[in-house]
Design a protein around this nucleic acid. Structure first.
Lengths: 191, 191
DNA sequence: CTTATTAATTGATCTATGTCAATGGCTGGT
DNA sequence: ACCAGCCATTGACATAGATCAATTAATAAG
């Protein structure tokens, strides 16, 4: 399963086999059944996590008990709670598997060791962070500017085939609308 | 005016006077009158920018000509369009001054040179990026989870005294609500 | 100072979206 | 294969927030 991560790394930068071995040595594979938690609210998140296979979601639960999906992640995406990782604070989010999944975990300490020894990994991680921030800002812009229908169309546009793997009530939650509204938007768009 | 930036840097990390001089050498001070643009949609953003004094906003303009405020920035904050900077693409945003302001600009090339020579600056910038991402994610969570009133209260909580310097229609825009709705929310909260 | 703009408030509607409830279709577990 | 429990859909209705319009308050310009 490390092969998938290795292929990903090689596609983004150049690593010698010794360097890959160093990464492999601190990587832990974790298999998750559908619905299984990777992180639960209140726990501290201590890893950098890469999705080798499957699909997961990050979500919060509000005072009324409603779930709000913050992010999805599929193969070749990173997932986790940066706030908890950065500050060592208990997470306000949950992460669970939408499909049976396989993730690769590297603890913060090991990851910091790797980035300090491998500049190309450091650059890669930094680039991903920058892109994540940009994506995040664009989502905010969409949130404050668009109607339910516009947000849904933009979502389908952005997620493409991945959107077919996500239950609609989770997409609705991600967009900040109810499942009923999403259902009506979809009906409208079919015409 | 460089002194302000210098104080900021020293408060976040340690720099020798030679290092500070190196930073000073590539810093450009730009004064902005109220309402003056720092960046206009369609232009490419090529700097890292630090606000020494004043207050600015980043916003987009939608198809209907409506403005949507993405961010505010005051003294000791960074501002810019990371997407345009990272990809070299024309910006979809505008940045202008809400008050007479002074910003310090360092071109991307010079900034990259600085971060490669000064690891502590690189770490600082990386930390800010991580925090920005976290803040951004939290704002998305707020957007999809809360009512107008809850979002406004959270905004006041987060921005504190700075919120008094911002016109209400811009706060409304930032929150994704109309000025009329914000006015009513405020009236409600006074009771 | 005076006037011209722009911003904030308020009232009267309108509308997109939420809420509640019922139905039928899938899906996963036994 | 069967049942139980989600999930998507649909309808009827409620409501937060938008829109439009008018008034007042605050700022800026001459």
């Amino acid at each position: 399963m490390f092969t998938i991560f290795q292929n990903y790394l090689q596609s983004k930068a150049s690593f010698t086999s010794e360097q890959l071995e160093m990464i492999n040595a601190v990587s832990v594979i974790k298999k998750l059944r559908k619905n299984q938690y990777l992180l639960q609210e209140g726990d501290v998140w201590r890893y950098n996590a890469f999705v080798c296979q499957g699909c997961l979601r990050t979500y919060s639960i509000d005072e009324k008990g409603l779930e709000h999906v913050l992010n999805f992640a599929v193969e070749n995406w990173w997932i986790g709670d940066r706030e908890s990782l950065l500050n060592g604070t208990p997470s306000r989010f949950n992460i669970d598997a939408i499909e049976d999944s396989i993730v690769l975990l590297i603890t913060k300490e090991n990851f910091d060791m790797l980035t300090s020894k491998l500049p190309q990994l450091n650059d890669l991680v930094n680039l991903i962070l920058q892109r994540s921030f940009v994506a995040s800002q664009n989502r905010i812009n969409s949130n404050i500017s668009h109607t339910a229908e516009e947000k849904y169309k933009a979502f389908i546009e952005k997620y493409g085939p991945i959107s077919l793997r996500l239950p609609q009530h989770m997409i609705a939650s991600y967009l900040g609308i109810t499942p009923e509204t999403l259902s009506r938007v979809r009906k409208q768009l079919k015409k």
